Amino acid sequence: MRTFAHYLLLRLIRALAAAGTFAILLSGCQSMGTDGLVASNAPPEISGPAASAIAGDMVSRLAEQIGPGKATVSLKPDASPFGQALEAALKGWGYAVVTDQKTDSETKVIPLAYVVLPFDGQILARLSTDHVELGRAYNVTASGATPASALSLMRRG
C-alpha cells in the first residue's frame, strides 16, 4: 500500500522527467535546417482543434517578443494540421508568410521553425527564430489544447 509520501515522490520524479525532456527539446539538440534553425516538424495525429489552439497561443506569445505583424515570416510548413494552423495563426496576427517565395532585399524576413512532440500524455511545442525561442507543454482535449506549463523563453544575442 502506497503512502502519501510515495505518491508525492512519484509525482516529483514524473515532473522532473518531463522537465528534463522539455529542456532537451528547448536546447536545440534537434536536426538543424540550412538556415541554422531547427527543422520544422509536427506529428500528423494532432487534431485540428488542438493544433489551432497551440498555434494560436504560441503565435500570440511570439508577437509579444517580435511585435505583431511587423515583418514577413519565412516558414517551411509540413502538411500536418499544426503546420497549417501555424500559418493561419501568423496571418491572423498580421504577419505576411512566405514559404518558398523570394522577397526583395528591403523586406525584413524572420525565419521561423517549429517542433511539436507528444510526450507523456502532453504535447511539447517550440517556435524558433534567429533571436528568440519559445516553448510550452500543452494538455490536449477533444475540443482543443490548454497550456500545461509556463512559457519558456530564450533570447539569443
Rank of each mutant, 00 (worst) to 15 (best):
E64S: 14
G36K: 11
K70L: 06
C29D: 04
D100I: 08
T34C: 02
D100Y: 04
A17C: 02
T99E: 08
Q30T: 10
A85H: 05
F22C: 13
M58S: 07
S40W: 00
K76F: 00
L26H: 15
D35T: 10
F22G: 14
K70P: 04
A53G: 07
V38Y: 00
A19S: 15
L62F: 06
V115K: 12
F82D: 00
F119Y: 13
G33T: 12
S47L: 03
P81K: 13
Y114K: 13
A71E: 01
K108M: 05
I110Q: 12
V59G: 10
E64N: 11
G36D: 09
G94K: 08
A89M: 05
T103R: 14
I66H: 08
L26V: 06
K91P: 01
G94M: 01
T21Q: 12
L16A: 15
G67M: 00
G69F: 01
L26E: 08
L86M: 08
A42Y: 04
A15Q: 11
T21S: 12
P81M: 06
V115T: 15
A50G: 10
Y114F: 08
S74L: 05
K102Q: 10
T72R: 09
A63H: 04
P68S: 14
I46G: 07
F82R: 13
A79H: 04
A55S: 05
L117Y: 13
D104I: 07
A17M: 10
G67L: 00
G48S: 09
G94V: 02
I24Y: 13
G67E: 00
P118M: 02
L37F: 04
P44F: 03
A113K: 08
S31V: 11
E64D: 12
Q65C: 10
A79T: 12
A71Q: 06
T72M: 03
P111A: 08
T107L: 02
V97Y: 03
V115I: 10
L26T: 14
R61A: 14
G67T: 08
S27Q: 01
P111S: 06
A51W: 02
K91M: 06
E64W: 03
K76L: 05
L86G: 12
A53W: 05
T72Q: 04
G33D: 13
P43C: 07
A55C: 04
K76Q: 09
A17D: 03
G94T: 09
M58N: 05
G94L: 03
A71R: 11
S60A: 13
G69T: 12
F22V: 12
L37E: 06
A63E: 04
G83L: 00
M32Y: 03
L90W: 03
G83M: 01
C29H: 09
W93F: 14
W93H: 15
R61D: 11
F119S: 14
G92E: 01
G48Y: 01
L112W: 02
A53F: 02
A85D: 06
